[in-house]
């Protein structure tokens, strides 16, 4: 079975470590906040100028001056700080954020990522995605392995305009957890009940498959 959105978030959350500062992109990455393992402390960074993002407010505590990068009303945790967008991207570009999780349309064997623009369709802008992929050392991309027709989104070379060149090392899809190095995808784990053959058939870029590929455990 391919992973659900919730399971994708759960699997990413296992990569969180005690003391991490983490930036979660919009969509599936946002759900990771719901699965922070017990006993560890992490701070969520929101690039509009908040370190220490908390849960959604109640009707009573809602504050229009306190939003996240998805423009949703949020709260701030104890120990949070507010700052300008320049300061926020200094943190990101300067490599101070320990883990960044974001979505993508395509990735390739060189670690390039396309996530912001589909020619012919409306272009809404890259927001902070280009800065995040250029600045972070440790990035996990969450995405669908293939489109609904079975066409792979893990490619020899991205076909869409890039968000970043050669900057992605780990990808979690609905089918597999994959590392990118030495110009190839390396299969680390597979989703429960998903065969190696299915992953191979849906991966267009060069894929290295070790002898034993463990199933993800939830």
């Amino acid at each position: 079975m391919a992973l659900s959105r919730e399971q994708l978030a759960q699997r990413v959350a296992k990569e969180l470590k005690d003391g991490y500062y983490v930036n979660l992109g919009i969509g599936i990455p946002t759900l990771v906040a719901n699965y922070i393992p017990a006993g560890i402390e992490v701070m969520l960074q929101s690039e509009n100028g908040l370190l220490g993002m908390g849960e959604f407010p109640t009707e009573e505590t809602i504050d229009p001056d306190l939003i996240n990068a998805g423009k949703q009303t949020v709260t701030a945790v104890k120990g949070a700080s507010f700052f300008s967008s320049a300061e926020s991207f200094a943190m990101i570009r300067g490599g101070h954020v320990d883990l960044t999780v974001l979505g993508a349309f395509e990735v390739d064997v060189d670690g390039s990522i396309a996530s912001w623009m589909i020619p012919g369709k409306l272009i809404k802008g890259m927001g902070g995605a280009m800065d995040l992929v250029a600045g972070a050392e440790n990035i996990i991309v969450t995405m669908m392995h293939a489109d609904k027709y079975g066409n792979s989104k893990l490619l020899p070379k991205c076909e869409l305009p890039l968000t970043g060149y050669g900057c992605i090392k780990r990808v979690l899809t609905d089918l597999a957890f994959i590392e990118i190095k030495d110009g190839a995808f390396h299969l680390l784990e597979r989703a429960p009940g998903v065969s190696v053959e299915e992953i191979v058939s849906k991966t267009a870029g060069k894929l290295i498959v070790p002898e034993h590929v463990p199933e993800m455990v939830f």
């Binding site: 690039e47 300008s84 967008s85 320049a86 926020s88 991207f89 990101i92 570009r93 272009i123 802008g125 890259m126 927001g127 902070g128 995605a129 280009m130 800065d131 600045g135």
Partner: peptide, 13 residues
């Protein structure tokens, strides 16, 4: 002119 958010912030700074 679409500009990455961090680049936009830094251009202004």
């Amino acid at each position: 002119i679409l500009t990455p958010q961090g680049t936009l912030a830094e251009k202004i700074r």
